[in-house]
Amino acid sequence: MSVPLPPPRRLVEITVDGEPVRLPEGSTILDACQDTPTLCYGDTLTPKNACRVCVVEVEGSRTLVPACSRRAEEGMKVSTDSERVRHSRKLVLELLGSSVDLSTTPGAAEWIAEYDADPQRFGQEAATVEQPVKVDNDLYVRDYGKCIMCYKCVDACGDQWQNSFAITVAGRGFDSHISTEHDAPLTDSACVYCGNCVEVCPTGALSFKTEFDMRAAGTWHEEEQTQTTTICAYCGVGCNLTLHVQDNEIVKVTSPHDNPVTHGNLCIKGRFGFQHVQNGRSAKQTQKD
């Protein structure tokens, strides 16, 4: 199998905080400043640029621009740490932190500290999206009190990857939320339990039932987990699986986003089939005992 080489791309030169940077044409500003905070950006998805935590200042632009989606253009002068940029990032974190439970969002606590954000400043009465967790199937859990409305799950489920179209954004404004049709339980929806939405969720609003239960029991210890990448044995496609193992048990399954076969996407067998492995094993063990 030969991999076609892409045609060589022209380079454009921009300055980032005064330093010249050269990038292949078509790159985004984010490609030039990798340490920018991002939430709704997904490496396998078309940028939705909804969260606005990645904004930067571009000389000549009336408003700030999202680094994750704005393409670099020759001669662009970008500031990533100006007063205006810091203010917007801080406020975005405060607005999100005051309305959504960010406790399982990787990076959130560090950014909140870095930008000196104070989500509590809006007071006790500030409206939030707090709501009961949705547990309606054995495979994954939807805890929308942690949802920042990044649209990534909807895009992964829809025409960007899965083409199942089981979930959507419903409602408008602060009331907008991720939903199936008529808010039906997942088991009544078009969901095929590929878990590709869980894979891209940046907040932990979507999580494996195993992870959710272990967190509830206080037995989830990410630092003790090992990750092993292997090839799924269920069919001949050859998807890469990364098994997350804690105490000899598989606790969740992801797939490398740079894998040319999966781009992070799996089907129900690869994603959730490990429960069979384990159930089978414990059944056998029980028999032996």
């Binding site: 607005l95 500030a126 409206a127 920042i148 408008r172 404004g173 602060f174 907008s176």
Partner: peptide
């Protein structure tokens, strides 16, 4: 503005609520 925000981006979706509060 709170009512009519489409809800897509954080500054407007949550900002218009905080402004009203």
């Amino acid at each position: 503005f709170r009512d009519e925000s489409c809800g897509q981006c954080v500054p407007c979706r949550v900002g218009t609520v905080r402004q009203e509060e």
